Computed example of a mutant assay.
Amino acid sequence: MSAFSDALSVTTTGLRAQATRLRVLSENIANADTPGYRRKTMPFELQRVDQGVVGVQPGRVRLDQSELERIHDPSHPMANEEGFYEGSNVQLIIEIADAREAQRSYEANLKMFEQTRQMSSGLMDLLRK
């Protein structure tokens, strides 16, 4: 029965990590047009769940240090003397692709969780007979 609880623990860590990743990606998408906004990135780190069982956990959120987009709009309140201001470094195509990947990974973890739970329930039914 331990293998079932280990599998459930690992899939649970995957669900939590992907949910956190989706939150970070949605913040990036929401702030794509915010001047001076730096894209947030979040790596995954290995996490020991039980004896010898390893899962994942969200790492520390970091700011992308790539250059901010330089936008020419002399009428913008944040524009300098030359008419430029710094936009964000968020690229919507990348964020949407990452969000789709995170969503699919979340769904795969959820499917694995459900299958493990069904297998555990089936085993209990067999043992009762």
Rank of each mutant, 00 (worst) to 15 (best):
I93Y: 09
D73W: 10
T41P: 01
G52I: 08
E95H: 02
D6W: 02
P58S: 13
K129C: 00
A19Y: 07
Y106I: 02
P77A: 04
I94V: 10
V54K: 00
L123S: 12
E86H: 13
S88E: 09
F4L: 09
Q57D: 02
L123R: 03
E86M: 12
N31C: 02
G59T: 02
A30T: 04
Q47N: 03
M42R: 05
L123P: 07
L15G: 05
Q18R: 12
S121K: 11
T12W: 07
A7C: 01
A102I: 10
R38D: 00
N28W: 07
E107L: 13
A97I: 04
L22M: 15
T12V: 03
N109Y: 09
T34L: 05
Q115M: 15
E114T: 13
D98M: 08
T12E: 10
R128V: 07
Q115R: 14
E69A: 15
S9T: 06
Q18K: 10
Q103W: 08
D98N: 14
E27T: 12
N109P: 03
T11W: 02
T20C: 00
Q47S: 11
G55M: 06
R117E: 10
R128D: 14
Y37E: 05
S75Q: 13
Y37R: 05
G14W: 06
G52H: 05
S26F: 02
E101C: 00
R21C: 05
F4N: 04
R70K: 14
M42T: 03
N31H: 05
L63E: 12
N109C: 10
M119L: 15
S9L: 13
D64S: 08
R16F: 11
Y106M: 05
H76I: 06
H72C: 01
R23T: 14
Q103Y: 12
V49G: 03
S9F: 04
T13K: 07
Q103F: 09
D6N: 14
V24W: 01
A30H: 05
M112P: 00
Q91I: 09
L46N: 14
V24A: 09
G55T: 06
P58E: 02
G87V: 08
Y85N: 07
S88L: 03
E81G: 02
E95Q: 13
L46K: 14
G36L: 05
K111C: 01
M124R: 12
R117C: 00
L22A: 10
D50H: 12
L110A: 15
A30N: 03
Q18N: 14
R39K: 13
A3G: 08
R48Q: 15
D50Q: 13
E69S: 14
A97P: 00
D6A: 11
L15A: 04
V54Q: 09
G36C: 04
N28G: 09
N28R: 04
A108R: 10
D64W: 06
E101T: 10
S26H: 03
Q65D: 13
A79K: 05
Q115P: 00
M1E: 10
G59Y: 03
A7W: 01
A32R: 07
M1D: 11
M78D: 11
